[in-house]
């Protein structure tokens, strides 16, 4: 990992990008915009455990490229998505944003943050929390694109009271 300087990257600018991302996920009208924040080879990954390093050869809670993410959101909007009647609402709080540096091999900006997500459906609210690691590249209308987002839930290998419909 290579260090970043103030001149190279404005940490507040990165933080604003993560807030923007959370806002897109919070708003069903902006889900497509969220998918478009990813690079064409972008990957969204939720492993079962923090120790997991291998997204291709080990089972995951979510391991999706842009195409599968698009399918996920198209389903959420489908009138016959039975588990979406009533609909899920979710909000995300992102904090502790730290720019860790640049990946020495790819040059991607490595950003770590902590999140809490509340998911509400059918009169029941479920709390999720954990850490995110973003690998970002410069570009796109929002200033950055996501090459890879890894989400580690503190409850990753726990029992799920409901199937998670919202993504952190």
């Amino acid at each position: 990992m290579n260090a970043v300087t103030e001149r190279d990257v404005d940490a507040r600018d990165v933080e604003r990008f993560l807030f923007h991302e959370a806002r897109c996920l919070d708003d069903p009208d902006r889900w497509d915009e969220w998918v478009e924040l990813f690079t064409d080879d972008g990957v969204y990954w939720i492993p079962y455990s923090r120790a997991e390093q291998d997204d291709l050869d080990m089972p995951s809670i979510v391991r999706e490229d842009k195409v599968l993410l698009a399918v996920r959101f198209a389903r959420l909007r489908h009138p016959d998505a039975w588990a979406q009647s009533p609909q899920t609402r979710a909000c995300r709080l992102v904090g502790n944003v730290m720019v860790d540096g640049r990946d020495a091999a790819t040059g991607d900006l490595v950003v770590r943050s902590t999140f809490q997500m509340l998911e509400f459906r059918a009169d029941k609210t479920i709390a999720y929390g954990g850490w995110a690691e973003h690998r970002l590249v410069e570009g796109g209308p929002a200033g950055w694109r996501i090459r890879r987002k890894r989400v580690d839930l503190i409850s990753g290998d726990g029992v799920y009271e409901e199937i998670m419909q919202a993504l952190p």
Partner: peptide, 23 residues
Amino acid sequence: RRNMIIANMVNTPATIISCDDYE
């Protein structure tokens, strides 16, 4: 890897398939 991808689609706590069965 390919069989695992099917598990990731159908058999996870965030699946877009079994959620409708559970419902």
